[in-house]
Design a protein around this nucleic acid. Structure first.
Lengths: 246, 246
DNA sequence: GAACATAGTTCCAAATAATAGAACAAGTTC
DNA sequence: GAACTTGTTCTATTATTTGGAACTATGTTC
């Protein structure tokens, strides 16, 4: 195990997650390293172009190189490539915000989005993680997952609001979702925001991702969402075909 | 200089830039390292969660963790935060694709975008780099830069099409741009795509970023772009105020 | 404005982790 | 099934990272 790399990436992570540039001493204390060690490592990251030093304060912050690297990964991601055209279609039909999410353990990661001209407040941005049980796009994926109960339990033990989840009722609801192919939530993750989501099925027959239409409750009523079921299902099956075909 | 970190990040870069997972031997050869070295480093990156191994082929590819890290950087970026509301406004007014770009040396990086419901083909995606001299959003920033001539020369020597650039004419054009605050291009970077861009001026009085409206020539005619000058200027000054105010 | 903190930087001997290269295992190809 | 190629493991040697103290710069307090 290459501990030096671990240390370097840990520092880079720390810096990227900070809201403001961080000083050497603060980081050294926080991560249990020597000041000199942190300093040298930061200098390395700086010459490599991943970190920059704020001239005035002498503190360190991330550069866009980190982000550029990340964007390379996501634009090449097969799911993003497969889903994008069909997300675009849905957006054209609905004029609402469209999300693409994938499951990572018990979390749901927002992979890509097309924002509505008049967007919803506090919309999740690409890169965000939320517990998969809350939003429609997470639930629809869980419904098409082999080890659902296990994931539900992860969630029940790890999340503060986990105990509210009723296992039996949830499993029953998931069965319904599997039949319909889509699911709705009213104020699922953010209050006042409604959402309808469908699952993109991968080669293995399980959910590989989800596409969701998302908007304020006033505009995206339950009625309207029901009307959109077919469009969402369509987008998902086509994205799935495109994914499996490639 | 912490060479181990450099090696690790070089490998991560290599993997992230690849279109398909890469094998140990190929990388070792390409980067002048021993196979065993590459293997151990990859194993490290894997336990850290930045790299994953394709079960079938045994080759290595990047994980979304790299991307998540990058997204943290850009969503916290002061320019993105400052510009987004005004980009949204412009999008609402025009229904076209809106770009936010910043300058990095002689390059122009696409930082953020809002896609039109009916998008242009081959639109640059966030994370892309293009030579700043071609697109409107690059030119408008160059016009408000202290060391323009230097950058033009970098470009003339480094880019295959660099010799086409006439220095005197370009400088004169930049003077005009400085007066008008915006600039248009017809087929500037991609043929058939027109664009109008304005500069966001930073604390130092130079361009810190640019906002551009971008669309197919049929839809975004020169006439229409001229009509949009004021809106674009407005968005830029407001974004600038918001940036400097924070 | 002098003394005191606090943060960032430099240096070097000691400790430790990374390296090269060979050997082995597991597939592929012919 | 023999000859390649590719991925993986192992270990003595090598070279790099480490810790700690000393130094500098900056700014804070009285």
């Amino acid at each position: 195990m290459d501990t030096t790399i671990a240390k370097g990436l840990r520092l880079l992570n720390r810096i990227a997650h900070a809201d403001a540039p961080v000083g050497v001493t603060a980081m050294a204390k926080e991560m249990g390293l020597e000041k000199s060690n942190v300093h040298r490592t930061l200098t390395t990251l700086m010459t490599l172009g991943y970190v920059q030093k704020d001239g005035a304060t002498g503190r360190y912050g991330p550069t866009l190189k980190v982000w550029e690297l990340g964007m390379k990964v996501v634009t090449r991601h097969p799911m993003v490539r497969a889903a994008r055209p069909f997300m675009q279609m849905l957006h054209q039909q609905t004029q609402e915000t469209i999300h693409l999410t994938i499951l990572d353990g018990a979390d749901c990661i927002y992979l890509d989005q097309i924002r509505a001209p008049v967007p919803v407040r506090s919309t999740p941005v690409p890169g965000h993680r939320v517990p998969a049980i809350f939003p429609a796009s997470g639930r629809v994926q869980l419904a098409f997952q082999p080890n659902v109960e296990e994931i539900i339990n992860v969630f029940r033990t790890s999340h503060p609001r986990g105990k509210e989840i009723k296992v039996a009722a949830t499993l029953k609801e998931f069965a319904t979702i599997r039949q319909q192919g889509v699911t709705f939530t009213e104020s699922g993750w953010s209050t006042g925001i409604n959402s309808i989501a469908g699952a993109i099925i991968g080669r293995d027959g399980f959910a590989a991702a989800a596409i969701a239409v998302c908007g304020p409750a006033e505009r995206l009523t339950l009625e309207r969402m029901e009307g959109l079921s077919e469009e969402v299902l369509n987008a998902c099956t086509q994205a799935g075909d495109s994914l499996r075909g490639s």
